[in-house]
Design a protein around this nucleic acid. Sequence first.
DNA 1: CCCCAGTCCTGCGGGC
DNA 2: TGCCCGCAGGACTGGG
Length: 285
Amino acid sequence: MPELPEVETMCRGIRPVVGGRIIGVRRPRSRLQSITYRPAFPRLASRVKGLRVEDVLRIGKRVVLALQEDWRLVIEPRMTGRVMLDPSQTFSHVRLELEIEGPARRRHRVVFRDVRGLGVVSLLSATDLSIALGPSKLGPDALEISCEEFRRRLAPRRSAVKTALLDQKALAGVGNIYASESLHRAKIHPAIPCCRLKPLQWKRLHAALIAVLHRAIELQGSTLSDGAYATPDNAAGRFQREFLVYGRAGERCLQCNRGKIQRIVQSQRSTFFCPVCQRLPRRNG
DNA sequence: CCCCAGTCCTGCGGGC
DNA sequence: TGCCCGCAGGACTGGG
């Protein structure tokens, strides 16, 4: 669920630790089965201890701490993970805590919380990271990709355009919410095969996707009813207020005021769209 | 290579 | 009131 805008917001939230040094690594006691750590937690913890945090980066939907000596600590929130700084309250399901000492002895605590435990924390060398998340594994960032590249990567495919948008190898950062929302804004039916879309539609989709992502970052992401995601201030994100289709099945379309929002399942995931705004063209029409 | 179904995991809400 | 089941969908794996 954390997609590009939510992960970007998390990264910005923990940026104050840049320049600090990791002085403690903990995995709070939990009766729950833990998440995946690579390497296993004790080794990961002893390796990062003492290292300085040189940068905080977002790679697709992952938070990356660039550490001294070319180490990269990669946190994948997947469905319900959240990376946050100095939580004022205590949270359940905390999977990792980094104690970081900054300049002037200022201390910070970076916490990775993950209710469902689908998240992964891995420690890699910069070289291994560039292989693990290299061009053959991960496409260009959705905020950076040009319209030409976007079309070149997606247009030859036979799969439904909604499904293709979720393929991180084609394009990094888009998940279920922003795929539905951007298709609606571009007035493209989610089930149309990529190879049937016209150049003008690719242009509209590219523009809609980038506009939606920028707006969602501006509003610090989307908080759903599960409340798993929150902003660095522990408030709800605000982009869900601007959802036009996601989670609105059965409601009247806010765009055309005529269509009734439909929910369909594509590749085992919910897709929402307006059948009036997003028409399915007739075959051989 | 492309595409899809199955898998992991927990909390929540609907049905009975 | 309480139990059970299905659903939510990130990324990965394996098979056609």
